Amino acid sequence: MKVWQKSRELKNEIFQLVKSFPQEEKFRLIDQVIRSSRSINIQIAEGYGKRSNKDKIKYCMQARGSLSETLNHLIDAADCSYINAEQLRCYRSKLDELERILNGYIKYLKSLPIEG
Rank of each mutant, 00 (worst) to 15 (best):
F15C: 02
I34T: 08
N103E: 05
G65Y: 03
R92I: 15
I42D: 06
K54V: 11
K2S: 08
R38Y: 04
L95R: 01
I106G: 11
N12F: 13
V3A: 06
A85I: 13
C90E: 14
Q16E: 14
D96Q: 13
N72H: 10
L17N: 08
L74V: 09
L102I: 00
L102C: 04
F21W: 00
Y48M: 07
Q32Y: 03
W4G: 03
M61N: 13
K11L: 06
Y82I: 04
N72A: 12
F27V: 14
K6H: 10
I114K: 09
S36V: 01
I83F: 02
R38V: 01
S52F: 08
S36W: 00
I34K: 07
I42E: 10
H73Q: 07
L102F: 01
R89F: 14
T70W: 05
A63V: 01
Q32N: 08
K11P: 01
D76C: 11
N12L: 13
R28A: 14
K19W: 04
H73W: 12
Y108G: 03
S52A: 12
N41A: 11
K26M: 09
R92F: 14
S93M: 13
R51P: 02
L112R: 13
S37F: 02
N84V: 03
K54A: 08
I42S: 12
E9K: 11
R89S: 15
E69H: 04
Q62G: 02
E9T: 09
L29Y: 03
Y82E: 00
K58E: 07
I57D: 00
P113Y: 01
I83K: 04
G116D: 10
N12W: 12
Y91M: 03
A77H: 05
K11V: 01
L88M: 08
V3E: 09
Q23M: 14
R64H: 04
I101P: 06
G116H: 08
C90Y: 15
L71K: 08
L67W: 12
Q43T: 03
D55K: 11
N53F: 14
F15G: 05
T70F: 04
S39R: 13
G49C: 05
Y108P: 13
S81V: 05
N84C: 07
I40V: 12
K50D: 01
E24S: 14
L74R: 03
S66K: 05
F15K: 12
Q32E: 06
L29P: 04
W4M: 00
M1Y: 01
K11F: 10
L109E: 02
L17C: 10
V33S: 09
G104P: 15
I34E: 04
R28D: 05
I106M: 15
K110S: 10
R8N: 09
A77F: 02
Q43H: 10
Q43S: 11
F27W: 12
E86K: 06
K6Y: 05
R100A: 04
I14V: 14
I34G: 08
L102K: 01
N103K: 15
C80E: 13
R92L: 13
C60F: 04
R64M: 06
D79T: 11
K26H: 07
S81A: 11
E86N: 09
L109P: 02
R92Q: 15
Y91I: 13
V33T: 14
E25S: 05
D96N: 10
D79S: 15
F21K: 06
C60M: 11
Q62L: 11
R100K: 13
D31F: 11
R51C: 00
G49W: 02
